Simulated assay, not measured.
Amino acid sequence: MRILVLFLLLLSTGCTSGEGEEQVKPNPTPSSILQENPEADILYVNGIVYKNASDIEWVVDSDYEKGDDLGIVEKQVKDPEGFRDLTATHLLVGTPLYEAENVSGDVIVAETDEGDLPYLALKEG
């Protein structure tokens, strides 16, 4: 009887070796993006890197609108180590940022003198 209880206890704790478990990749960082492309047009908001999506057809073709105000770009840098929240590589300091509405995906709209620019979140897993 004790052996049966011990067996059931071990079975219920789910002893596994970890093999076959799917590894979740971390989200890209400003450093990893800029190592691949030092000229990348990116934005860093709330721990997520966003890439200029002006050349991504499905984003441009969606009827996105500006939603909630997220703040303004506070810092412009090219050095990946200089990134903090509300930092961009190309957008000017003071550029207003908004959540995008009416679009599938995590998109931010940057309001620039040349018009609104969409930025798409770069997320893994």
Rank of each mutant, 00 (worst) to 15 (best):
V107R: 02
I56Q: 12
V49F: 00
M1H: 06
E101L: 12
E124A: 13
E74I: 01
E19I: 03
A100C: 11
V24H: 13
L86H: 15
A53V: 08
Y50M: 12
S62Q: 07
Y64I: 06
Y50H: 12
D69N: 15
P96A: 01
D116A: 02
T89M: 08
E81P: 00
A110V: 06
V59T: 11
L11N: 05
I33E: 05
A110W: 06
L92W: 02
I72S: 09
D55M: 01
K66V: 05
G71Y: 02
K25A: 13
V109Q: 00
Q23D: 12
T16N: 13
S62N: 10
E21N: 10
L122R: 04
L92H: 09
S104P: 00
L70C: 10
I33C: 06
D61S: 15
S31W: 03
E81V: 04
T29G: 04
D41Q: 14
L34G: 00
S12Y: 07
I42G: 03
E65A: 10
G125T: 11
I56G: 01
S17N: 09
E36M: 13
V59N: 12
P96M: 03
I108N: 01
I3D: 14
S12G: 04
G47Y: 12
E57D: 15
V77A: 10
L43C: 08
E65I: 08
I33H: 07
L11E: 03
V107M: 03
S62D: 09
A40L: 08
P26M: 01
L120R: 10
S32M: 01
G94I: 10
E22Q: 12
E124M: 11
T16F: 08
T13M: 15
L43F: 05
P80A: 03
V103P: 07
S17R: 04
E114H: 10
D113V: 13
L43Q: 06
R84H: 13
K78F: 09
K25S: 06
L117R: 15
T16L: 09
H90S: 03
S32E: 04
H90R: 08
V109K: 04
I72R: 06
D41E: 15
P26S: 11
G47K: 06
P26A: 06
Q23N: 11
V5R: 10
V93A: 07
R84I: 13
L9E: 10
L6G: 01
Y119T: 02
T89A: 07
L11D: 01
G115M: 08
E22H: 11
L91N: 01
L117T: 11
E21R: 14
P28A: 09
D106F: 03
E74G: 13
I72V: 13
R84T: 15
L34Y: 01
P30G: 07
S17A: 08
I3H: 14
S17T: 11
D55R: 07
E111D: 14
L9I: 15
